[in-house]
Computed example of a mutant assay.
Amino acid sequence: MMEQLNEEEIFLLLGKASGSLLPGEEALLEELFRNSPAATTAYQQLLENLKEAGSGKEGTIPLPHWRELTTEITNNAHPTTTTVKKLFSWKWAAAAASILVIAAGVFLYSHYSNRKSSIAQGAAPAIELQLADGSVINLSRQQGTIETGSIALNNRNKTLAYAAKGNAAAGTNRLTVPVGLDYKITLSDGTEIWLNSATSLQFPAVFTGNTREITVDGEAYLNVAPNAQSPFLVHLPGSTVRVMGTAFNINSYDSGITKIALVNGAVQVQSGTALKVLSPGKQATCSGGQEITETAFDERTVLGWRKGLFYFNNAPLSEISKVLPRWFNITVVIDDRSLLNRRFTGVINRNHPIHLFLEDLKVISGIHGSVDANGRLHFQ
């Protein structure tokens, strides 16, 4: 049945199987199921193939052909409809669906559901809030209502809201989210900020004056409360974003490079003397004070971290090795430097044990990872 579907329809089926569809894509899939009996049948076949792949049965695909299929998919990060149809025209087409899911980085739950993680991960440090008066609050340990001298905090379900008291408006507070964790804060004006791992936010308890200004280092998604009389300024390493009310993602993990991806509304990006006004669906990249470049971006890839997903598109091991420490609080050592340019297409799920991703990495790219007695991850 797969050969009767186009590339986008196959993509929706695979996304449903992996649990990674966005809400709009879920709606498209429901409409597809209503209007296409072939899609419904193909999805049921896909689930059966996944169960077979997870049961440990051998012979689903002869090994040489399995390798050829994996290589072709990995080398075609965005396969054309012709390529997809060619792959599914094999006499092993049913099993090819399973391998396509694996090559896309989907975790085969039926294969792993009864397995325990064999990797001891380091204990993640705490989320901390340092108030303007110098006091530090451990938000990972202290939950519920927290009374301080200047701010009344409400810390529940990885979300912080607060109310300023007295002279709390003076000075700057600093919220730090360590590796392996994420967190959300609602500022005094109603602006919502989701902070990714290894990210810090500096903000005042109460905004005063003609502007609302914060500083972010790392990655964050902002839904800025509209206020035409008080523009919102986000200071980043080497650039500044000016908004009135909008939703956008900022990423400054890479030294000297900042990326601003606009979901809706409008923002003005300033880097040195360069200025750029973005429209929704566009991403600005600022590098070392040079000219700002503008490109379209894939919302699934850029915003996947909010669902605990990180998508790799033909990414080298050198790039993967930067993400793993942030997401799993683990030290990465690459023993075989020849692997640095070995590439992988797939996805990490931060909510799953890291050994599941390592098995996908080994199967798809031939990269073997192991953890030593000190909890360091070695690639060899």
Rank of each mutant, 00 (worst) to 15 (best):
V136L: 14
I146M: 06
G166L: 07
A164K: 02
G149A: 11
L153W: 06
E147Y: 07
K85R: 10
S118G: 15
A95D: 03
I146S: 10
Q130D: 07
Q130I: 05
I146W: 04
W90N: 12
I137G: 01
K91P: 02
A123K: 13
R115W: 07
N154R: 10
A97Q: 01
K158P: 00
I102A: 08
I151W: 01
V84K: 08
L131D: 15
G122W: 03
Q142A: 05
L87E: 12
N167I: 02
S98L: 04
T80P: 11
R115Y: 05
H111A: 13
N157K: 12
I127A: 08
E147L: 06
A93Y: 11
G144K: 09
G166I: 07
K86L: 08
N114T: 07
A96P: 02
T83I: 10
G122K: 14
N138E: 09
G122Q: 13
A132W: 07
W92P: 00
L108R: 05
A132R: 05
Q130H: 08
V84C: 10
G144R: 10
F107H: 14
G134D: 08
A104T: 11
N138Y: 05
I102T: 13
A124Q: 14
K158I: 00
V101E: 03
L108T: 01
K116T: 06
G166T: 08
K158Y: 03
I99Q: 06
V101Q: 05
S150R: 09
L139C: 09
G149W: 01
A94R: 06
A163G: 09
A152H: 07
N114A: 09
S89K: 05
G122T: 06
A124F: 05
T81M: 12
A124V: 09
F107P: 02
V106K: 11
T80I: 07
G122R: 13
T145Y: 06
Q143K: 15
T145G: 04
G149N: 10
K116W: 01
T81R: 14
S113I: 07
Y162E: 06
G166H: 11
F88S: 04
L160M: 08
E147D: 14
I146K: 03
G122H: 15
E147K: 12
A123G: 06
A163Q: 14
S89L: 01
A95Q: 04
R141N: 09
N138D: 15
G149Q: 08
Y109M: 04
K116I: 03
Y109K: 10
A124M: 12
K86N: 13
S150P: 00
S110N: 15
L153I: 02
A94P: 00
T145H: 08
N114F: 04
A96T: 04
Y109Q: 11
E147V: 10
S98I: 00
A123I: 10
A96K: 02
S150H: 09
T83E: 15
V84L: 15
I146Y: 05
I127P: 00
A164T: 03
A93L: 03
S89T: 06
L129D: 04
L100G: 06
R141D: 14
Q143I: 00
T159E: 12
S117C: 05
G122I: 01
K158N: 14
A163Y: 05
Q143C: 00
I146G: 03
K158F: 01
I119R: 07
V106A: 14
N154K: 09
F88V: 01
